[in-house]
Design a binder for these strands. Structure first.
Length: 542
RNA sequence: AGGACCGUAGCCAAGUGGUUAAGGCAAUGGACUUUGACUCCAUCAUCGAAGGUUCGAAUCCUUCCGGCCCUGCCA
């Protein structure tokens, strides 16, 4: 399902003949890594265009030199590719600087723009405030010839940064501050990554963006809610410059994930202060972070699509993201058994040194994934959480003294006795198994209390689990130090065991174990398996 | 405070004057089971509030309440 209200507009525009084709664009400023919030814009733009067999352009919004970096552009391209989207073409805002300039000259010629000498502070003063009207600049009524000459000189580099701006003549009394003679050109004397030192003046977003859209024949220019108040200016620019096409700006709400930081500034700070390793740290909400965390592009796409879109900034719980990952993984991933906090189990009536191998499906719901051998012997590990001496209630579905439980893919075992350390902590459970109950044998004379996972101590491999319960949290007051906002508990390292045949190939990708997701940071150098568990386990038993 | 946008369940979100207000997530109860997973079944809102218009309103109007955004030569 895709955003209804925008889709409806597009349909109408197609039906009425206003447009023959839908063209959208994703216009990031290449000054940061893309995060899950951007995914909404990307998916929406691409999917919407796809609905109508249209096109989507990737346009790097580079009207402000020295703000963008090449690494970010590369990262953005990679993220897009990872999500599975291929732009119709890749452009730059700076591709249109020449035209922007001519359009501006025309505005001057029509008496709609003027060069202003007001300083930044003066301009601010003249602008007025939210409830007091602004007043007109004393330079507002310069002659067209003078304005033309001055503008030319600005371009030539005759003036310093901040000395002059080109403003558009609208209405200093407007209740919309964006309409109080906004500046459309400012002087910046820095080389531009694409145009070099050709320009000393650069257009501002509010002027450049509608023109870029028009030049690319964008039909629907989607952006977030904070641009609503810029729309009158967007339309003003289109109306008064009369470019080649008439794009329409449509706003939608931003997507936030409950309790996570999605602000460029903070993400940058997290990296710079080394609170995380880099933008692709699995705790980061960046697309590269999520990727490393084990998320699939499909899951993110589905998440965005099913989560919908409206004119509300939505705050969506993290578990919704998890849900879509689960949906995507559950059929296509091999599931392995693992224990995070091992508890020794000894099968007292099983022969010493004997090892049995059972065939176990890699994914109970998908036979195509085949099966593997799992081993069983006298000494096993189970999850500490899966045992308790006295079961708390009838709903308890794990192992407890005197009760029987199925070891997944193997036998029923019955817990008879515990061994405790000097602190009274259970360190081992002595069990007996019932040979008749082998999984797949058709045994159904008794029902076990539940089914739990295990690994065979004689063949299991040690593994390091990094547990990430959360993305970076942001439940703090604005003046709080960043390091205090950081959820330190979001990273835990646990040593446990995984099945022997666990295959740490890149293809293995995410693993679904114990209802969590595991991504894939493998340390193959010392035969150690490192698994990032990316989602908190379902809260155990009640 | 001037202006803009918005308010449908715990979280998203369809619906834009006419049957018992879609759907997803979460939750709860149950069935099944080689994971308390998965699957399946069931339960779960009178639409921010109050008035008004109308034969009829979540849908139109008014007022109020609440949220969010706007005073860059950022995007």
């Amino acid at each position: 399902m895709i955003s209804n209200f925008i889709k409806t507009i597009m349909e109408e525009d197609l039906n009425s003949g206003k447009h023959k084709e839908i063209i959208t664009r994703f216009p990031p400023e290449p000054n940061a890594y893309l995060h899950i919030g951007h995914a909404r814009a990307i998916v929406t733009n691409f999917e919407l265009a796809k609905c109508f067999n249209g096109k989507t352009i990737l346009r790097f919004d580079d009207t402000n030199p020295a703000k963008e970096e090449k690494r970010f552009m590369d990262a953005i391209k990679n993220d897009l590719a990872w999500l599975g989207y291929t732009p119709y073409k890749v452009t730059f805002g700076s591709d249109y600087f020449d035209d922007d300039y001519v359009f501006a000259q025309n505005l001057i010629k029509e008496g709609k723009a003027y060069v202003d000498d007001l300083s930044k502070d003066e301009m601010k003063e003249y602008r007025g405030t939210l409830d007091t009207p602004g007043k007109e600049s004393p330079y507002r009524n310069r002659s067209i010839e003078e304005n033309l000459r001055l503008f030319e000189e600005m371009k030539e580099g005759k003036y310093d940064e901040g000395e002059k701006t080109l403003r558009v003549k609208i209405d200093m009394k407007s209740s919309n501050l964006n309409m109080r003679d906004p500046a459309i050109y400012r002087i910046i004397k820095k080389p531009h990554p694409h145009t070099g030192d050709k320009w000393n003046i650069y257009p501002l977003y509010d002027y450049a963006h509608p023109l870029q859209d028009a030049e690319e024949y964008i039909t629907h220019s989607l952006c977030s809610l904070e641009y609503v108040e810029h729309r009158p200016l967007y339309d003003w620019v289109i109306e008064n410059t009369k470019p080649m096409s008439i794009p329409r700006q449509i706003e939608f709400g931003r997507l936030n994930i409950e309790g996570t930081i999605l602000s460029k500034r903070y993400l940058k700070e997290l990296v710079e202060t080394k609170l995380v390793t880099d933008y692709d740290d699995p705790r980061m909400p960046t697309l590269v972070g999520l990727k490393r965390r084990g998320f699939t592009p499909e899951s993110i796409k589905e998440f965005v699509l099913s989560t919908g879109l409206s004119r509300i900034n939505s705050e969506i719980p993290l578990n919704v993201l998890d849900h879509f990952l689960m949906e995507d993984l559950k059929l296509k991933n091999v599931r392995r058994m693992a224990v995070l906090n091992p508890l020794k189990v000894t099968i007292t009536n099983y022969d010493d040194g004997k090892i049995e191998y059972f065939d176990f499906p890699n994914n109970l719901e998908n036979e195509e994934l085949g099966s593997r051998k799992i081993s069983f012997s006298k000494h096993l590990y189970i999850e500490k959480e899966d045992f308790t001496e006295i079961k708390p209630n009838n709903k308890y579905k794990r192992l407890s003294l005197g009760a029987e439980v199925r070891l997944m893919g193997a036998y029923f075992i019955k817990a008879n006795e515990v061994i405790k350390d000097e602190n009274g902590e259970v360190i081992e459970v002595l069990c007996t198994y019932d040979k008749e109950t082998l999984s797949g044998s058709g045994f159904n004379a008794r029902k076990p209390q539940g089914t739990i996972q295990y690994v065979d101590a004689s063949t299991a491999k040690p593994a390091e689990f990094r547990l990430f319960d959360n993305l970076i949290r942001s439940d703090a007051t604005p003046d709080m130090e960043l390091k205090d906002k950081f959820n330190k508990d979001s990273l835990l390292v646990v040593n446990g065991y995984v099945e022997q045949e666990y295959d740490p190939t890149p293809e293995a990708k995410s693993q679904l174990i114990r209802n969590g997701y595991y991504s894939n940071d493998y340390d193959s150098t010392n035969d150690k398996i490192i698994i990032n568990r990316t989602v908190s386990l379902k809260q155990s038993f009640k």
